[in-house]
Amino acid sequence: MMLLRPPGVYRPQSDTSLLTGALGQALARAGIPAGARVLELGTGTGAVALAAARAGCEVVAVDVSAPAVLAARVNARVRGLPVRVLRGDLFAPVAGEVFDVIVANPPYVAGDADPAAVRGRARAWEAGRDGRVLLDRICQRAPRHLTPSGTLLLVHSALNGVAATLVSLRAAGMRASVVARHREPFGPVMRRRAARLAARGLLGPGQRHEDLVVVRADRIGAPGGGADGGEEEGHARERQPA
């Protein structure tokens, strides 16, 4: 699928495909209602939001990047898909709203940069010392934006700690497990910082691959939710620069 992607907007990659596939399975098999309200956090070009809209969902997409918001709006408009695209920080633009499904592909690459100070294309991957700056915020805040039978689908690298995500979501009263995993080699950003991450114990000796995981979390009592007790740990993955 050809998408408008201005400079600095995250290019859809393996994590995008993994999340889109998990969303499709959830919509097809898990009892999520027709016309479900879907929120995508960190929409980028809008690839996942467009897939949800094509499936008949009512979609809201959010991104902090002005070029990403523009790209997602144009990509939706030229396809005639009714996606509401808002600019802002995570849940701020949808305060007080609830959704049947929340999907998120946030920045998650571990590094030394302060994500709040990053500008330009690095905004799409820089996520603090352990890569969890946005992941932790999503895990903490997503439950209050879900309907009583709502579902969260969250993609990140196993380098960030799968167990930390599962524990956080379960502590919030959700049933959480890993529902998809994909291994791939490091891209240029991770290759440049692999030695530093290995020195901090985040990578194994000579490790040059990482795993992407999709974590699914359902409000307790939601139909078709993942079993409690999925995979706990893995390896790693990165967002490659455009």
Score class of each variant (00 low, 15 high):
L159R: 12
V167G: 09
V189A: 15
R216K: 08
G150R: 00
L197K: 06
R137A: 15
V155W: 05
H209T: 15
D211T: 15
G131K: 08
G187L: 03
R141Q: 13
G187Q: 07
T151H: 01
G206V: 08
F186V: 09
A198Y: 11
V167M: 08
G201S: 07
V215I: 10
A198V: 11
G131I: 12
L166P: 06
V162F: 02
V155T: 12
L135Q: 09
Q207S: 14
T165Y: 04
V189H: 07
I138C: 07
P148D: 01
R191C: 11
V179R: 00
M190V: 06
V162C: 11
D211G: 12
L146H: 00
A195V: 14
P223L: 09
P205H: 13
A222H: 03
R129F: 11
P148A: 02
G150S: 05
D130I: 11
L159M: 14
V167I: 10
R170T: 13
V215P: 01
P188Y: 05
L203R: 11
H156F: 11
L202I: 13
R141Y: 08
P223Y: 00
C139S: 05
P185S: 07
T147S: 01
L197S: 02
R181H: 14
A194D: 09
P148W: 03
G128F: 03
A180T: 03
S157H: 04
P185G: 03
P223F: 06
R193Y: 11
G128H: 03
G204Q: 14
L203A: 12
M190C: 08
Q140Y: 11
A172W: 02
H209S: 15
A127Y: 05
P223C: 10
A176Y: 00
D218W: 00
A163P: 06
D130W: 15
A199D: 13
V167K: 09
L146D: 01
A164I: 11
G131Y: 10
M190G: 04
R129A: 15
R191T: 07
P223A: 07
F186C: 07
A195R: 09
R183M: 13
V179W: 04
P143L: 03
V214Q: 05
R181A: 14
T165F: 02
V178D: 04
S168I: 09
R129I: 14
N160D: 10
A198G: 09
L169V: 03
H209I: 12
H156K: 01
V162K: 02
S168N: 06
H145K: 04
R144P: 01
R175F: 08
G206M: 10
G187M: 05
R129P: 12
R216Q: 13
R196Y: 06
C139Q: 07
L166Y: 04
H182E: 15
G201V: 10
A198L: 13
G221S: 13
G201N: 12
G204N: 10
L153Q: 01
R170W: 07
G161C: 13
G204W: 14
